[in-house]
Simulated scan of single mutants.
Amino acid sequence: MARVFRNSFEFLVVSLCFLCVFYVHKLLFHQQELTLVIAAFGASSVLAFSEGRTVNSPVKMFASSMLGAFLGVFCSRLDTLLVVKIVLAIGLCIALMSRWSIQYPPAGAIALIPILSGSAIQELGYWFLVYPTLTGLFIIYSFSKLKHYLNSIFYGQ
């Protein structure tokens, strides 16, 4: 029974986190074009909400995601085929994360958002690094810390 309560608690915290991500960015964009943003943050949340089983530090999470966002915007502005933009963004993101030892898999998805998204996100240009990238990561990180804190209170972990 305790396990069911704990799983329900985790579901509630994660659901509230994504509602927060959605509504904060809905206010920032004034549009509904958030599907790709929320999908990329889903990968980030899996790592952020894991019970200490991830080796990613907050510094690596933020640095690699900002790198992915920068490369995505940069590549989205190139005057070339879509497939070339995608390959360059992911390839450069992986190469630079490996070079700087900041591997964080969701950064590859974040790099694709400015390339594959619609006009509302593409028009942000490099502001994409601030929102939705930085704001979304901050919300997810904050909720994951809240969940870990509440777990330590309720379950002694």
Rank of each mutant, 00 (worst) to 15 (best):
L92P: 11
H30M: 04
R99G: 01
F143H: 01
I121E: 00
S65Q: 03
P132V: 00
L34A: 06
G68Q: 06
P114G: 02
A2W: 10
V87T: 15
G91F: 08
F22T: 01
Y126H: 08
D79K: 10
V13E: 02
L81F: 11
I90G: 05
L81H: 15
L134G: 03
F9E: 00
V46L: 12
A120F: 08
L28Y: 10
H148R: 12
S142K: 01
Y104T: 04
V83Y: 14
A43F: 13
R6C: 09
A107H: 15
L137T: 02
R53N: 10
W100M: 15
S50M: 11
I115R: 09
S45N: 05
S45F: 02
A111G: 06
L36K: 08
G136L: 04
S65F: 10
I86M: 11
T133D: 00
R77K: 14
G42Q: 10
V37C: 07
A89M: 11
E51K: 10
L129P: 13
L34D: 07
G68V: 06
Y131G: 13
R6P: 03
L88S: 12
C17V: 06
S50H: 07
A43Q: 10
I121P: 04
P114N: 03
F11M: 11
L71H: 12
F22P: 00
L16M: 08
A120L: 08
A95V: 13
L134Q: 04
L150D: 01
S64C: 07
G42N: 10
Y141M: 07
L47F: 15
S76K: 09
R6G: 05
A107P: 07
F74K: 02
T54R: 08
I38Y: 00
L150T: 06
P132I: 00
M1S: 09
S144E: 03
G156L: 03
I90T: 15
F9N: 00
V83C: 09
A39L: 14
P58F: 11
A109Q: 09
T54N: 10
S15I: 08
S15E: 02
S8P: 05
I90L: 15
Y126W: 12
I139W: 03
L96G: 08
V13F: 09
F5Y: 13
L150P: 02
G118T: 07
F70I: 11
Q157T: 14
R77P: 06
Y141E: 12
G156E: 00
S117M: 04
S57F: 12
F70V: 08
H148L: 11
V4Q: 08
F154H: 02
H25D: 02
S8W: 09
V59W: 12
A120T: 15
S117E: 04
N56I: 13
S142V: 12
S65V: 04
H30I: 04
A120G: 06
Y23K: 06
S45E: 10
V55L: 08
V24G: 00
V83N: 11
A95K: 03
F128A: 03
S50A: 14
I102E: 03
L82T: 15
